[in-house]
Simulated assay, not measured.
Amino acid sequence: MSASAPTPFAALHRRAGEPLLLPNAWDHASAALLAEQGFPAIGTTSLGVAAAAGLPDGAAATRTETLRLARRLGRTGRYLLSVDVENGFSDDPEEVAALAVELAGAGAVGINLEDGRADDTLAPAALHAAKIAAVKAAAPGLFVNARTDTHWLAVPDPGPETGRRLAAYQEAGADGVFVPGLTDPSAIEELCATLDVPLNILYSPAGPTVPHLADLGVSRVSLGSLLYRTALAAAVAGATAIRAGAPAPSPGAEVPGYAAVQAFHHDRPGPGAASDRG
């Protein structure tokens, strides 16, 4: 698709001064709740998908679970879906491209493809670029967000290596680039000035706010596994408080009732009663 006619998902990355805030879901209910709050696009969190299945994240162990979730979420029509596919679950670019075709067929409009490996090393930049090129050739309408883990892994002086990798990924056809772990405002602004594609930053509670990231030129802000980990913390806090004889702590928002959550089931309508059966 030409730059003058971007896909709806790509267009969300091109709103001046208004980055796409992408919350990350781990199942149907979390995606439905986020969509109800008006988020036009939702990503998946690879940690949430992996942990829910009792599998490790970043170890190419969740291809089946990721595809199953994409098929569940990609056909609702209520939001645009981007899928975190770790490193594509393979070092064979053609296998990664085949997965991309399956995800596009399931209704996904984008993928997040990372160059970090389970052994805490970076894949060769040329290999990652080959994966990007293969995906764009096989599924040209899919928005490829090319992630580099230079700021998360033990890369000394990561700035130059980040720039080198992002240049290669842009050249390979990436629609956007993602640098999790980068929180320094001046480095973010500098990087934005060198890129021809949108920059995605992972939100950090200790880093710049979303309005500040917008001022720096960031086009997309992902929440990653933050919401999933927050939900786990709320579950533990509630259970332990009740065990101790205290009221359940307030999560800061109204807890949805049984009927409201049941209504998110898109195969059948929820019950009228507000009972709590499980």
Rank of each mutant, 00 (worst) to 15 (best):
L99W: 09
A16F: 07
L232M: 12
V85H: 01
L122A: 01
V144T: 05
R14Y: 10
P40L: 12
S186V: 14
S46W: 09
A154P: 05
P271C: 11
P93E: 04
E254H: 02
T183L: 02
G17V: 12
A106W: 02
L67P: 00
P256D: 09
V255D: 04
V255A: 07
A233E: 08
A125Q: 02
D119S: 01
A10G: 11
Y228K: 06
A31N: 03
P256G: 08
T230L: 14
S30H: 05
F178S: 00
A106F: 01
S275Y: 13
E86R: 01
M1Y: 15
H13C: 11
A253E: 08
V49K: 03
L166A: 11
G272C: 08
L213F: 09
P160V: 06
P269K: 12
Y203H: 15
D91V: 07
T121M: 06
P185W: 08
G77Y: 10
L153Y: 04
A137H: 08
P124I: 01
G252L: 02
P93K: 00
G88A: 02
D92K: 02
L113R: 02
L99T: 04
G270I: 09
W26S: 06
V218D: 03
G110D: 01
R229G: 05
K136E: 13
P8Q: 09
G54F: 05
E95F: 01
H13P: 00
A129M: 10
K136T: 10
G173S: 09
V261T: 12
D27N: 14
A235D: 04
I111L: 14
T162Y: 05
T121Y: 07
G48W: 04
A108W: 00
P256V: 06
R68E: 14
G245V: 03
L113Q: 05
N145I: 08
D276Q: 09
L47P: 00
D175V: 04
A133Q: 11
A10W: 02
A125V: 15
L191M: 01
H13A: 02
D157H: 11
D184Q: 12
A214I: 07
H13Q: 13
A139K: 04
H128F: 00
L81C: 02
P156G: 11
S204K: 06
R277T: 14
P211S: 12
S219R: 15
L153H: 08
P19G: 13
P247D: 15
H28D: 12
L20K: 05
P140R: 15
E161H: 10
D84S: 01
G43Y: 03
P251A: 07
N24G: 05
N24Y: 08
A231E: 11
R68Y: 02
G88E: 00
A231L: 13
A234S: 09
D175E: 13
S2P: 04
A35Q: 11
E94V: 11
R165P: 06
T209M: 10
D149L: 01
E114T: 09
S186I: 10
A108K: 00
